[in-house]
Nucleic acid binder design. Structure first.
Lengths: 216, 216
DNA sequence: ACAAACATACCAACCGTTCGGTATGTTTCA
DNA sequence: TGAAACATACCGAACGGTTGGTATGTTTGT
């Protein structure tokens, strides 16, 4: 019987395939409910490969969050709206882009790190921290455009670019929860529309007072 | 040896104690990472009691979501802001009340059903549905006040009371994610402040578009 | 007496992890 | 040049602890 002379072209990418499997499976089933076997099966690798690349399951969770941060970062950097000249246009372009990628099953468009953050809060602090870095790191990329848009319009606000940037993430994360609850992406889109309306109101008011509702 | 003949006041409340334990532990560790033993230990009952009251662990998850819906419903119904006469005052009173109860550790003020929704999306549809009922049921309680406030101010909007009510829940859920990510409740409060500002802008804008003015 | 409300003991399946081993490059140095 | 030495990538059976769940006994209120 002749030697198969097997050359494995997929050799060397077990780690990447596991991270992609983690991204997809964990978004649907959650971190704890996803077993190592589940991940290996989804990635088409063996347990040996898994524990060659990741010391523990928790380490994979941390790596998956970091992988999510990397890939999404590149994804948004190369998005077409980034080429717009006006900072405010870029901000609204971002929101529109977020709306555009809300498509298919909720498990496909929702946020891995948002999902993991809540469930691992008390059980895997290391994963939670990696998720926090991803969320707030992404939020920070919005700050320059918000700040520039404020300056261009002479807006004096009682809110900061950072707080508004984080608020956009809060709305998106909350929108994902609603969409997962019903399985209907429309529930997410509705909320993002409210976010868009909020931004419109904020940046169409010359001197944004934003006062709390104190007894009209 | 004489029989203790003691009246056990805690007897008969194993179910309630398990549901309260579930509420507290699951918010910190997630549903899947919380074992039946964890719950029994936290509730001070045995496994026999657990499976006497709940057929499966999943059934407890469903019951916990229902229990959450019941208790929170009663909690908000009896809140002081509910006694305000003006619908818009009640709406802002709700937001202020939500801010007020954001205190202590994130595991104590975040939402059980919001946490569970994401992680059980693909693994326990029954729990997810119970969570959805809780979230959207609570959102629905805001609709009458929003509708009344719109009518009182003659607001013609391209959004519905239902969509705004759901948006408030999205913001709150997203705010909880941010707070759990950092462990800092201030991150949640900031986002709720943006929600408050959005509501202020919405209800201070008369029907004429494009020329919003502040205040009453 | 009887059923509901527990408690105790136990089990089989599953889980994350370990580990001895193979296959395929890569570096070293005579 | 080439082959020994080393490094990396991967395999998969097996292990011990944990898990959700069960079977059965005991207490309690009516």
């Amino acid at each position: 019987m002749p030697r198969p002379a097997k050359h494995h072209p997929e050799r060397g990418d077990a780690r990447a395939r596991l991270l992609e499997a983690a991204r997809d499976v964990i978004r649907a089933k959650g971190f704890a409910a996803t077993s190592v076997d589940d991940l290996c099966k989804a990635a088409g690798v063996t347990k040996g490969a898994f524990f060659h690349h990741f010391e523990t399951k928790e380490a994979l969770g941390v790596a998956a969050a970091a992988y999510w941060a990397e890939t999404t970062s590149a994804f948004f950097e190369n998005a077409p709206y980034r080429k717009l000249e006006d900072p405010l246009d870029r901000l609204f372009g971002y929101v529109e882009f977020r709306k555009a990628i809300i498509d298919g099953d909720p498990a496909e468009f929702t946020c891995l790190v948002g999902t993991m953050t809540q469930e691992v809060y008390g059980s895997h602090p290391a994963i939670r921290d990696a998720c926090a870095a991803s969320i707030f790191g992404h939020a920070a990329t919005l700050e320059p455009d918000i700040a520039a848009a404020m300056a261009a319009r002479g807006i004096e606000a009682d809110w900061t670019p950072a707080s508004l940037a984080r608020h956009t993430q809060a709305v998106l994360q909350g929108a994902f929860i609603l969409a997962k609850a019903t399985g209907d992406r429309a529930d997410a889109l509705d909320s993002v529309d409210h976010l868009k309306r909020y931004l419109t109101l904020l940046f169409s008011t010359p001197r944004s007072k934003g006062n709390p509702h104190d007894g009209c």
